[in-house]
Design a protein around this nucleic acid. Structure first.
Length: 433
DNA sequence: TCTGGGGTCCTTCAGCTC
DNA sequence: TCTGGAGCTGAAGGACCC
């Protein structure tokens, strides 16, 4: 038993519901609780603090420091000032003028995440990642080998701490939904077991916003119906919920409010869409600038598709106006593509069809949906198509990028003012054959 | 106060075919 | 031949999550 297990084992009984009985796991209140929800504490900030121990104990936030940045992660010291994720950076700085701001380093977070997920997969193959910093685990098959779920959970917490240098919180329950609530309840650096026979007692006093799928809008609807707690929702006829929220959400909330969650932990099959979007530093009304941004995003999306071996059939553009209203437009292609030039042609057509004249935009995005394996994707062959086309040209760009870095080869339209080929010539776009 | 970026899922509606 | 309904698909938008 490592030191971290002993120190954190003391926290195992925190909360008024948990009954797991300590690091030795002698109690069996975790019977019938095979689902673990593991959530890293202030993940991005914790990753940064590994290499900046001098910042420990200080209010630290991670996020873009541009004029329109928002907080991506905040340490618990920063949260004491009222700072939370998704808050505009300007407001965070007003709340805590001394806050330390660090730019995000997603490569680092991905690396730490991979290490953490590897620990999970050591325990069970049934790991369902929700994001870089959290996952569900079904440990039913590991109990014989590793002990009861609460002991497994404590072991995971110890390993994450010892091997990755960050802390995490684990919720243990009979269903995914309750396990997730349990981890939220026990944060930070905690462990909470909600025994199967205490689920309703645990759930019903919580506010409706605790239910999965209840955000700002749904909460408003429920409050208008006079429903403030999960117990209120549970004691409302399903028909009423369905009328107010639609059949799927109404039934879903009714089930969750009684702790019914039939979803099992599932290893994800793969992504369903890949996209990129970008907020301009200042609103833009020049169609040429917007088309250039669509080109840049299309190239980026295509490069990601190829890197992951996907092609997609539906191209979606997203346009956000200066007043923050947002529209999307999409088109389904005859055959899937992973070629930036094709994605851009569709994105540009969709944008041009909007006929926006000089409307001020704050964001544009490009997304490709309907993904399938690029090798299995049917390709539309044209009679006059050359043997080697844009796909091969872009694959060559991928190879150059891998060797010399991002942006080494890119469409001439994306070159900045004053950039040229270094020999005094004009920029040259890839021109296969 | 002034709102990022990457996603998923659900609902509604229109158009098409049978 | 016309009409209405069912079922499917694509498009668009909204809500939600981290």
């Amino acid at each position: 038993v490592s030191r971290s297990q002993i120190t954190r084992g003391a926290r195992i009984t925190q909360g008024d519901v948990t009954s797991a009985t300590g690091p030795a796991g002698t109690g069996r209140d975790d019977d019938g609780c095979p689902v673990l929800h593991v959530d890293m504490d202030a993940f991005y900030a914790s990753c940064e603090l590994r290499s900046r121990p001098d910042l420990a104990g200080l209010p630290v936030i991670v996020g873009g420091d541009g004029s329109r940045g928002v907080v991506t992660a905040a340490t618990y010291e920063a949260r004491k000032y009222g700072i939370h994720s998704a808050m505009p950076m300007s407001r965070a700085k007003r709340l805590c003028p001394n806050v330390v701001i660090l730019p995000p380093d997603f490569a680092l977070y991905s690396e730490v995440s991979a290490g953490v997920m590897a620990i999970f997969r050591d325990v069970t193959p049934l790991v369902e990642p929700l994001s870089l910093d959290e996952a569900f685990l079904d440990v039913a098959g590991a109990v014989r080998r590793l002990g009861p779920p609460a002991v497994i959970a404590e072991g995971i917490r110890a390993r994450v701490h010892d091997e990755q240098g960050i802390t995490c919180t684990v919720g243990v329950a009979s269903t995914k939904f309750v396990a997730k609530l349990a981890s939220t309840h026990a944060k930070p650096d905690g462990l909470l077991v909600v025994p199967a026979d205490r689920v309703v007692a645990f759930l019903h006093p919580l506010p409706v916003g605790a239910l999965w799928g209840v955000g700002e809008k749904t909460e408003e609807v429920l409050l208008r119906l006079g429903l403030r707690t999960v117990g209120d929702v549970a004691n409302t006829p399903v028909d009423t919920l369905v009328r107010a929220l639609g059949p799927a959400a109404g039934q879903h909330l009714a089930d969750l409010s009684w702790g019914r969650d039939p979803r099992s932990v599932e290893v994800p099959e793969g992504e369903k869409s890949i996209g990129n979007e970008e907020t301009f530093p200042r609103d833009v009304d020049d169609p040429e600038v917007i088309r250039r941004e669509l080109l840049r995003l299309s190239e980026k999306v295509a490069s990601r598709l190829r890197a992951q071996g996907f092609a997609g059939r539906t191209v979606v553009i997203k346009v956000r106006f200066a007043d923050f209203s947002t529209i999307t437009r999409s088109r389904t292609l005859r055959s899937p593509t992973d070629v930036g030039r094709d994605i851009y042609a569709t994105a540009r057509d969709l944008y041009d069809a909007l006929g926006l004249q000089r409307a001020r935009l704050r964001l544009v995005g490009v997304r490709v949906e309907g993904l399938l394996d690029a090798d299995e994707a049917p390709r539309q062959m044209l009679l006059d198509e050359p043997e080697l086309g844009w796909r091969e040209a872009e694959q060559a760009v991928d190879r150059a990028t891998a060797r010399f870095g991002r942006g080494t080869v890119r469409p001439a339209r994306l070159l900045g003012p004053g950039e040229h080929d270094g020999w005094g010539g004009t920029p040259v776009a890839p021109r296969p054959r």
